Deep mutational scan, measured.
Amino acid sequence: MPEGSASLQLAVGDRVVYPNQGVCRVSAIDVKEVAGQKLTFVTMRREEDGAVVMVPEGKVLAIGVRKVASAE
């Protein structure tokens, strides 16, 4: 991610809310080559049905992904 860009610090195992998809758990953060460029992807699995969603790390905030609020 370019320096100075806002990002959401995620780790494998974090629970997040993905708008219009529901609650997901981060299952992987991997670098993949797409069209000759190396990009970091956040892979999330929906808790409702296990569907897998992959989002480029740089788009996580723009999409509206946020961490699940704690009970505290």
Rank of each mutant, 00 (worst) to 15 (best):
A6T: 11
V55W: 05
G4Y: 09
R66M: 11
V55F: 08
V42K: 00
P56T: 11
K32Q: 09
Y18A: 05
S5G: 13
G22A: 04
A51T: 09
Q37S: 08
V55M: 09
V55D: 03
D30Y: 13
V60Q: 04
R25P: 01
S27Y: 11
G22C: 03
S70F: 10
P19W: 06
I63R: 05
R45D: 04
S27L: 15
C24Q: 00
V53F: 15
A69L: 08
Q21S: 08
G50N: 07
A71S: 12
G36A: 02
L8C: 01
A11M: 12
V17F: 15
D49G: 04
E3F: 05
G4C: 05
S5W: 09
V23A: 05
G58V: 10
D30F: 15
V52F: 11
S27E: 15
V16Y: 04
A62T: 07
G13L: 02
S70C: 08
V31T: 10
E48K: 11
I29E: 00
I63P: 09
G50K: 02
T43N: 02
L61A: 14
M1P: 13
V52I: 13
V53G: 02
G64M: 11
M44R: 00
V31Q: 08
Q37N: 08
S5L: 12
A6K: 13
A28T: 05
V17G: 02
S70D: 13
R46D: 03
M54C: 04
T43K: 05
E33D: 10
M44Y: 03
S27G: 03
K67P: 07
K32D: 03
G58C: 08
A62I: 11
Q37T: 10
R25L: 13
L39K: 07
C24W: 15
I29M: 03
G58A: 14
V12L: 05
Q37F: 06
G64S: 07
G64P: 05
Q9N: 11
V12A: 02
G58W: 15
G50D: 07
G4F: 09
I63L: 14
L61V: 15
V68P: 07
D14L: 04
G4V: 13
M1Y: 13
G50Q: 04
C24K: 00
G58Y: 15
E48Q: 10
Q9D: 09
K38M: 11
N20M: 09
G13Q: 01
L10K: 01
Q21T: 07
K67G: 05
E33S: 07
E47L: 08
E48P: 04
A71N: 12
V68D: 06
L10F: 08
L8G: 09
M54Y: 10
V17A: 06
V17S: 07
D49V: 02
V12Y: 01
V68K: 06
K38S: 07
A69D: 11
K32R: 14
